[in-house]
Write a protein that binds this DNA or RNA. Structure first.
Lengths: 350, 350
DNA sequence: GTTAGCACTCAGGGGGTTTGAGTGCTAAAA
DNA sequence: TTTTAGCACTCAAACCCCCTGAGTGCTAAC
């Protein structure tokens, strides 16, 4: 796509004005905006050219021009200037990262919220389900004679626990025996490898305490399953209604329900190779997103796994600002996970 | 409020029609609906009476009538027929209760979602923050030479854990010592009782491992704080837009943002004495809820604590159906917690 | 290649009219 | 006394029409 410098300036001015105002942009406004000594007629000629190249479109004959998805694409790839975060913005992100981010589980949710607040657009966060997680170790802690805590730690250093109450009493020795048995039999196994036969063998070996085996192992299975499952968290959906393009319910509702809770993780785009990806309008696969744009970033959560966080908005979203904030946050999250600062989880019972 | 039987029937018919259609109800429609051999003129006279009693109102002179909040209140208190759950509905609720309810932490969220799906209204769930929680016991589990797991259990039987990595190595003996020290010094203490002086004394006693004390104790403090904090989960906000009364953005948006994430728990009404409470329109304290109705139910989560779950919608919400579903679900939740079937939590690190 | 000028287009807003559902009142019937 | 039929009245919503003004494309001159 080779454009004259002037065309580029005009296109950029149109896009930035439209991003701001959501109103079609006329030739006169642009003539002023670019501060060149050309008349609106010249701009009109140029705009006609840009339109025939598919970079602009007209909502109707006598309105100004609006950028086409192709126009946004060119803008994003070539014209857009890096948006620098203000000190205030970085501070806000940093604070958000520090704050309440201790629990891996909530990080997703929290990250989505932060992004949504930061950008004023709805945001989503995906956990990339891990594959072939295994239990690294079991610990059984006696609490009372008829209650103990299971603590399970996976090969990816995730720790979960559960309190178990029993109808009957239990000795410390039994618990010890059980502990050893579990650690020798069920560690290093992935979900598929925990077979009913294995369970039977272990139950046999456990003697009196055979019932406890299945209690503990089914907890372990739950943990493994929950880690392999992908989940979505969305937040800031209400921001959608603040945007002029979603002031009409007919437009807002389908998108809103597409993004709403219980959304299928597969619905959401994921950056493949790059750390960040911008999908403009029809570049989205999902129909409901066909006239929205999505910006997604991924971050490292250790063990080669990546988290995904993204923003959804109208095609005229402020790409420069959003990419800047999103990538800063994603970097922060990577750092957070990388340093292992993030370590808590929680487990509770009753 | 003594009304003739006929007036009661008319009022009820008006309310139920309006609940259904959201359209003002005219005298003719009612004359048919109640199947009495009276003319619309008679109904008009009766409606005029009901209006002068404040039970009905007119949006404007030449429209039909709509129920006033006072009318709904009468309906809820006296006229409403118990809605019976269909087999299908109870099955759905039961299944929802079984499914994915293992983690206390997520119960809130999950319960809100279920309600929202069940009623097609936005729902909220509150955790009633506990007061004066204390740590009952500490367990430190060695993982590697430079990593260990903290497991903390509160007096309310909630267990949380965290993985800690250290820059330097640690002996099993040190960990043992630390463990004993923590259990003798910091158990049975509430948040306020964990003073800096106490910390200093303990650090002194810990010798070389003094740094670890603050690591572990600050984790314990985090846990106590998180339990004392009240939180809200909202879900199904998108349902709001499906309702005719919220088809105009000006009406939907304030409510939506009132309910949106990061909402203050104090905003939400809580049933005090009864297990269920209905707040109709102006009966709500919050301005944003002045022309909505809220139905809240509470359920027992053990230790004398109660969870709260509620539904928000237009004043013409289907009280019969919603109270039935909500109370069934609340009972189910109470049972679930009561039996202690609910026990998992989760804790993870890295 | 650029500009001024001009005829043309069309969404959006304002104002007026029509429609129809619903009301209140009155007078007659039960 | 209660109910009913009839009729005049009201008013939101739908529709229509016209006007306005921002913006365009084209052409002819610079």
């Amino acid at each position: 796509m080779d454009l004259t410098e002037r065309k580029r300036r005009i296109l950029r001015a149109i896009i930035e004005s439209y991003i701001q105002s959501a109103e079609p942009v006329g030739s006169k406004a642009i003539a002023q905006a670019i501060g060149m000594e050309v008349s609106s007629a010249t701009i009109r000629n140029e705009m006609a050219d840009l339109e025939s190249m598919g970079l602009l479109e007209k909502p109707h004959t006598s309105a100004g021009r609006i950028p086409s998805p192709k126009g946004y694409r060119l803008y994003v790839n070539e014209l857009m200037e890096e948006h620098k975060l203000s000190l205030q913005e970085t501070q806000r992100i940093n604070q958000a990262l520090r704050l309440k981010m201790q629990e891996l589980d909530r990080v997703l949710d929290q990250a989505g919220r932060v992004v949504s607040q930061l950008t004023n657009y709805p945001a989503f966060a995906l956990s990339s389900g891990m594959s072939r997680v295994t239990i690294r170790r079991f610990d059984l802690l006696m609490v009372e004679r008829n209650a103990f805590i299971i603590v399970v730690m996976t090969d990816s250093n995730i720790v979960r626990n559960r309190l178990i109450r029993l109808p009957s009493d239990l000795t410390e020795a039994q618990l010890q025996m059980l502990n050893t048995l579990l650690n020798t039999t069920f560690t290093g196994l992935s979900l598929e490898e925990i077979t009913p036969e294995l369970m039977r063998v272990a139950q046999h070996a456990a003697g009196d305490a055979y019932g406890l085996i299945s209690l503990v192992v089914s907890f372990a299975i739950e943990v493994l399953e929950s880690l392999e499952r992908r989940t979505v968290h969305t937040s800031g959906l209400a921001h959608l209604l603040e945007l002029p393009e979603y002031r009409s319910l007919e437009r807002a509702q389908p998108l809103l329900s597409y993004l709403s809770e219980d959304a299928d993780p597969a619905r959401f785009p994921v950056p493949k190779d790059d750390p960040m990806k911008i999908l403009i309008g029809p570049e989205n696969v999902a129909d409901a997103l066909k006239d929205t744009s999505v910006v997604v970033a991924s971050y490292d959560i250790g063990d080669g796994m990546r988290g995904v966080i993204g923003v959804v908005g109208p095609t005229r979203m402020d790409y420069a600002k959003i990419t800047a904030r999103l990538s800063y946050l994603a970097e922060g999250l990577s750092r957070l996970f990388g340093r292992g600062e993030l370590s808590d989880g929680r487990d509770d019972s009753k």
